[in-house]
């Protein structure tokens, strides 16, 4: 168990070091998220600068889903270009360690995106971020984990597939529907004037159980799924 985590950390550190040198993913994904928020602002904000109820949480999660998908595709594209995923899979490391390492790296990248995206939603759509910052962070963390745990596995599998860029969202979006629903509804319950913390906690509980089920399923199946 400890050795799996140590190898996973080595793989994640490798990814982060590559990223720190080029900063390609951080820059492009964050910029994509900002432009997506702008497009949403043009489509939803009314002439008198009011924001329709529920728009802020929806925009936040849709942007997160789209930029997360782009980040996932790019992370594995990098491995594919130099055929390094084969090397990674050939190295004497267990499959769960490879999967966890990739997942850590993707999670850290998405956390960076959220660090820009969340304040931006607060600024543009008057979302009350300070109302329950702890719960908001928990919602984002569990939602991102659920999205990334499924996404990393399928992105890794799709590396060798044809038309992988379009197939990742095709496969990923139906599976993460519960994450999106729980994330949007939970955040919305937090943002509405009469905040109901019990509702937020209920959605948080669903996200936690989704994470538990799909993370264990991914760890259990990544051996046969990532292939020989």
């Amino acid at each position: 168990m400890i050795s799996v985590l140590r190898s996973a950390w080595l793989i994640a550190a490798k990814d982060l070091r590559v990223e720190a040198r080029s900063r390609e993913l951080v820059y492009t994904t964050v910029f994509f998220a900002v432009t997506a928020v702008l497009i949403f602002a043009f489509s939803f904000v009314q002439e008198d600068s009011t924001v329709p109820p529920g728009a802020a949480s929806g925009i936040l999660w849709v942007t997160l889903t789209f930029s997360g998908t782009i980040a996932l595709t790019r992370t594995f594209e990098r491995e594919r270009e130099h055929d390094t995923l084969r090397g990674l899979l050939l190295s004497p490391v267990e499959r769960p360690a490879v999967y966890l390492g990739k997942l850590f790296a993707v999670l850290l990248l998405l956390a960076g995106v959220e660090a820009v995206l969340v304040p931006l939603t607060g600024l543009f759509f008057q979302a009350p971020l300070g109302r329950a910052p702890g719960l908001l962070c928990l919602l984002l963390a569990t939602g991102t984990l659920g999205f990334a745990s499924v996404g990393t596995l399928f992105a890794a599998m799709l590396v060798r597939a044809r038309s992988r860029d379009v197939l990742l969202p095709v496969v990923l979006f139906p599976i993460v529907v519960p994450v999106i629903i729980a994330g949007v509804r939970g955040t919305n319950a937090l943002f509405t004037p009469e905040t109901d913390l019990a509702v937020v906690r209920m959605w948080l509980a669903m996200l936690v159980s989704f994470d538990a089920v799909f993370l264990s399923l991914a760890l259990w199946t990544c051996g046969p799924l990532l292939g020989e």
Partner: peptide, 23 residues
């Protein structure tokens, strides 16, 4: 459209799909 090896991939979708229903 997945090309070679899509059998394994789609089996993953089928398996994850079964776990998804209750959620």
């Amino acid at each position: 459209f997945g090309g070679a090896g899509s059998e394994t991939l789609s089996a993953g979708v089928g398996l994850f799909g079964m776990a998804l229903v209750p959620f």
